[in-house]
Design a protein around this nucleic acid. Sequence first.
RNA 1: GCCCAUGUAGCUCAGUCGGUAGAGCACAUCCUUGGUAAGGAUGAGGUCACCAGUUCGAAUCUGGUCAUGGGCUCCA
Length: 630
Amino acid sequence: MCNHHENDPAADSAPQDDAEDGGALAQEEHEMGRDAFDNEDDYRLHCLRHSAAHVLAQAILQLWPDARLAFGPAIKDGFYYDVDIPGVTLSETDLEAIEAEMKKVVKENQPFEQEDWTKEQAVAYFAEKGQVFKVEHIGRLPVEKVSIYRNRRKDGGEFVDLCGGPHVMRTKQAKNVKLLKVSGAYWLGDAKNPQLQRVYGTVWKTKEELDQYLFRLEEAKKRDHRKLGAQLDLFMFHDWAPGAPFWLPRGEFIYDLLGSRMRKLLAGSGYDVVKTPLVFDKKLFETSGHWDHYQENLFHFPEGHFLEGDADELEGTDQRILGLKPMNCPSHMLIFRSRKRSYRELPLRIHDQGVLHRNELSGALSGLTRVRQFSQDDGHLFCAEDQIADEVAALLELIDRVYAAFGMKVEVNLATRPEKMLGDDALWDRAEGALQEALDRSGRSYGIHKGDGAFYGPKIDFDVYDALGRSHQCATVQLDYNLPIRFDLTYVGADNELHRPVVVHRAVFGSFERFVGILIEHYAGKFPVWMCPEQVRVMTVSEKSLDHGASVTKALSDAGVRVHFDDGDSKIGYKIRQCHGMLVPYMAVIGEQELADGTVSIRSRDDGDLGTMTVEDFVAKVVSESVLPF
RNA sequence: GCCCAUGUAGCUCAGUCGGUAGAGCACAUCCUUGGUAAGGAUGAGGUCACCAGUUCGAAUCUGGUCAUGGGCUCCA
């Protein structure tokens, strides 16, 4: 949607003339102009990437002349092209050959020539070439003339593509190119349409930038939460429970730390913390609308004891169907509705970290970021309309506080009414106005995601940025005018009349599973002391210092420090190496010297050798670093 | 769900032409009492993801299933 981030601190400095590569100046007169980009560099890169996509398409057509081209846009960090090659499925081993063919096109240094054709002319041309997807797309374009780009080859052939541009001047500018992967992709992104093959690549202005990008990809792989999760014994998976993590002791510590801290925090700010059922009669989901609109993601089954093969006998019976809840909100509606409510009870804040199940497509599962079983720091506020702004303002404060504790930047956008919406404009004016008021009052800068709200209400989008600058959607604040209607929620106002409350869905971490995954990658496994499952490992040099080691361990443990004692008979170098792999923040080495002095020798994960200090000083140091920052 | 790739010991990976499995680390036992990133010896550990098929014979070839990884409009 909106590419502009008002609070983006990126310097908007004027671009330098790039003399070396001949200036990656793009041609003018195209739909996606210079204005769409924050700065000249981004614009030039976009031109370059879009051009590389054309080079890719030309190469594919050279190798497979009957290939049919679909879309080939520039994307973040690169480009792709969707193609359909009759009788051929590409695999990654084909990339080398395609890349070699691209290099030929690059070497010819073909100019990109732009022309405007009438739609009839374009349809005739692409139809003659068998380019059915281009023909189909031209038919959808609401313009008189379409823009095309032409590349002429040295052998007299040419490559012509329907394209609004912009492009660089010549193909040689796309020389620092690398193809990365192939995958399937549906025509127009719809699984009902035929599936095409997508080739992804990246391209940069200089060889150095390309190498740096490939290096960054490798670095990101090193902090992959799936890899670190295994290395640090945080969680595991098993084939017999796809998409459902097993939280091992160390991972469970972090999971529980976040959850219990949040529960405490909210309980102290006027929330009622509850626990609600996992399994419900499908009537609940029929009421909430999930049965009609979310059924493919709902785990459900007939009540009772059935063996394999009994399914037929269920036909036509009024067997009760049960489902695992995919969200907490419906159960909270039932709690609100469980008795007559007064305006004096509002805002009623319900918090629930219940276990949720969503039957995600098998191909969509991925580590902790996309799971079938998870829980959230989920909460629902039932309030009167004039309470929304205050409630949302408090939430903004909370979200800021929590993410600051993890050293993450939060970017905020107001998502406004979509085209298909529930309720009238006056209602939406008030709803969006309340959110806007809260945002303004927070004194922060924020953007607007126009039309990105849900059909049942506007929301605030939070993008948090991790250590690698990647953005994640975790926190959410969402107004809902739909569920209160579906569950017919009312409260008695001061006027003794019945009123409909507004529901606010809200989460700070979002899914704990996903958030822990993000934290692992954000910190590259090197968690701050306060959230480390193991803060200190005490290790002895030899048996002679076992007693001192034990007493140091006890002193730490008594002070609430999470400590392990490595009293094994391995050499100290070996113990250090073992501990190093577990990213424990402090190692306390205990030998005869420390025994004699009553000290510990400390080695820090982040700062190396800290020398010796008294046991009391070390305990105090770790305790002071264990304070939760939120 | 769909496309591509992958699946061999707890982990990382070898395994040639189809001839019933190998390394390092980890683990166990013993030796070693050693001062800041791997001390030594011995040992145990595998239905080669699962199920079929081809074959005298399958980790290897074929088909299917399951799981994992990458992706499935950041608009010509």
